[in-house]
Computed example of a mutant assay.
Amino acid sequence: MRAIEALVPRWPEGKRSCVALAFDLDGPTGGAMLDGSIWRNPSYFTLGAYGPWRALGRILDVLAGRDVPATFFVPAWVIENWPSQCRAIVERGHEVAYHGYMHEAFWTLTPDGQREVMASSTRIFERYLGVRPVGFRTPSGDWSAETIGILAEYGVRYSSSMRGDDRPYVLDAKSGLVEIPARWELDDYASLAYQRNPDYPAGLDRIASYDATLDNWCREFDGSHDDGLCMTTLFHPKVSGKPGRIALLEGFVDHVLQADDVWFASCSEVADWWIESKQ
């Protein structure tokens, strides 16, 4: 028995490990939208718009066919512009959560600026989807010292933004904010994203083999499952929701389903169970 076995949590119904599938439905939001350059680059805009407009439905069908839940972190601007597509996420039983308004880098915003983003996002989620989210994934991969307190002001109970463990953990004792850490190894951008101009990701001139990409994802699950941990993903519909690449998602989920002792859950379910199990 490896030493890590002493750290293995007990998941609901005696399941060995947990998988919380998560997708960042960014659309065309991000740096180019924030600086206005995307409006001079129709190709780049449509590359992002493909996510909510075309790829999302394909991903929802894959999840439905396997009866597994997922969490979608959605910039509020995307909800405003593709409301029916975003409503389909909720109607088909999945969770939606905060991801900024236009995918802002939270660490660059003042506390008031962060509050403004959270306030406008809350109004949009409630208006278009009838939902007040309890989860947050920082769009920028980082945040400022004030962010945790601001999230608590808006009823956020969990984050999936940091990298400090392979299991959920309490990120802030005062607010009780639970972190459900993701890892770059399970970010489809690392293997599959390609954009010629602007050059993003910087320096990328090719994409990885699909076989190697799927193998990497499956090996990450195997390690997490062996140690009884919690895995979540950083998948992007505009990247991996295309006709050829959707087979990677299908193959990954099917691989996980072969282990019949996995708890598939939304991120909010994971956070709630973790809080209750530690009381």
Rank of each mutant, 00 (worst) to 15 (best):
A212E: 15
K238N: 06
G51T: 01
R58N: 06
D205L: 12
S121M: 00
D165K: 07
E116I: 06
A22E: 00
L204S: 10
V117G: 09
H94N: 10
L171Y: 10
F45L: 14
G51F: 01
A202G: 04
A32K: 07
R167H: 10
F125K: 00
V19R: 06
I124A: 00
C218K: 15
W53K: 15
R245H: 08
N41F: 00
V8T: 15
P69H: 07
H236W: 03
E153S: 05
V256L: 05
G241W: 01
S277Q: 14
V78K: 14
R163E: 10
F221A: 01
V8G: 03
A271D: 04
L47G: 05
A76Q: 04
P52Y: 08
L151W: 01
L151A: 05
E269F: 03
A119W: 12
I59M: 02
R245I: 06
L60N: 09
I207E: 11
T46R: 15
R58T: 12
P83M: 07
M102H: 12
H103Y: 10
F252P: 04
A70L: 07
N197W: 13
G176L: 04
P181R: 04
S144H: 13
I148G: 05
R163L: 13
S121L: 01
A6R: 15
H255Y: 10
S43K: 12
D172E: 07
A3K: 12
H99M: 11
P12T: 04
T29R: 15
G164L: 15
S224H: 13
R66F: 08
K174L: 12
G113H: 03
S277L: 02
L56R: 02
E5H: 10
A105Y: 10
A22H: 05
